[in-house]
């Protein structure tokens, strides 16, 4: 399909541009990570010039190399899956740091985002279908929660359910001294620790989906084909889902794909508030420690995630809306 071919070509060019910019920006900035690391290690005794040179090589910052040579080197390393060493978590590699943190974020923020979308959209559909019912009253209430900054809601949740009531843990993703293992105790402990941050994310992001879907539904319900479906004597459920919601959901798909791509960057503030061991928390640490290799890698992953999510959204549109299948 030439439509897909064109889309793939577009994404390849975009990825190239993103990686190139990602390579250039830190090199255009003053200072470099080696100097930071030197400053950090200085406390443990002075470093020899040879040690400094070794660090420069390790971080790919040999100044005598031309920019073009560095760029080439960068691509080679990238294809080897080598994103350098982390300053913050030295001597761990950036890849290791991300590989440890990413699953936590994907599970917590990913699942919460999907839950928020499903519940919000579902309530939106029903609220539009039953205009004037109590569900419409849910709209202003959930808007209120959207207006509250989610990190603040997180703080309140920690204070009330963690500190005062003691129902939920205050921080972390796992119980003390537990290791990642796929057994019952691990999963229940992980769920227990994820409950508060997940609820915070769901409650604050649900209303957006709800209002968007409800408004689109109300517009769609005014369409002739919905009236036709009713005149056809179809069941209420089929009219609501296949005729109204099926069309009304199309605009939501793009924003859902976009929000899924931001799952990778994590809900930074939520992860900070709950000290959750995800990417958002790692990014926060990286920024505080001026950990350029780590930041660079995280930004690269976020960029890729946005592109992948957009591509998936494009595919979803082709699948959901026959009008996009038309060759332009």
């Amino acid at each position: 399909m030439s439509y897909l071919g064109r889309r793939v070509g577009f994404y390849l060019v975009t990825i190239w541009a993103a990686i190139t910019i990602n390579f250039l920006i830190p090199r255009l900035m003053p200072g470099n990570p080696v100097q930071l690391l030197i400053a950090r290690l200085q406390g443990q005794g002075t470093l020899s010039t040879r040690a400094i040179h070794a660090l420069s090589v390790a971080f790919g910052l040999e100044t005598h190399q031309s920019l073009v040579a560095q760029y080439w080197h960068y691509w080679v390393q990238l294809f080897h899956g080598n994103l350098g060493l982390s300053v913050t978590y030295y001597p761990s590699t950036v890849v290791n740091v991300i590989a440890t943190a990413l699953p936590w974020t994907l599970a917590l923020v990913g699942i919460s985002t999907v839950i928020a979308f499903v519940i919000g959209t579902g309530i939106g559909i029903l609220a539009a279908w039953r205009r004037g019912s109590w569900l419409e009253a849910a709209l202003p209430i959930s808007t209120f929660f959207t207006a509250i900054p989610y990190f603040w809601l997180g703080l309140v949740a920690v204070a009330v359910f963690g500190v005062v009531l003691g129902w939920f843990p205050l921080s972390g993703g796992l119980g003390q001294g537990m290791a990642v293992a796929f057994n019952g105790t691990f999963i229940s402990s992980a769920l227990y620790h994820a409950a508060l941050p997940a609820v915070t994310i769901v409650v604050t992001s649900m209303a957006g989906w709800m209002i968007g879907m409800r408004n689109m539904m109300v517009t769609t319900l005014g369409e002739d084909y919905v009236l036709v479906a009713q005149a056809k004597g179809l069941s209420e459920r089929r009219v609501m889902m296949t005729y109204a919601a099926r069309n009304a959901i199309l605009p939501s798909i793009a924003s859902f794909a976009l929000s899924l791509s931001f799952v990778v960057s994590g809900a930074i503030l939520v992860e900070i508030v709950f000290s959750y061991p995800g990417i958002g928390y790692v990014l926060f640490q990286a920024v505080q420690n001026e950990d350029y290799p780590l930041m660079e890698a995280i930004f690269l992953i976020i960029t890729l995630a946005v592109l992948v999510a957009n591509f998936v959204a494009d595919l979803a549109y082709v699948f959901l809306d026959p009008r996009t299948r038309q060759e332009a």
């Binding site: 009236l227 036709v228 479906a229 005729y243 009008r323």
Partner: peptide
């Protein structure tokens, strides 16, 4: 219906 353009559901065959 009056408007055949809008009386058919655009996403169903």
């Amino acid at each position: 219906f009056q408007s055949a353009m809008h009386a058919l559901n655009p996403v169903l065959s």
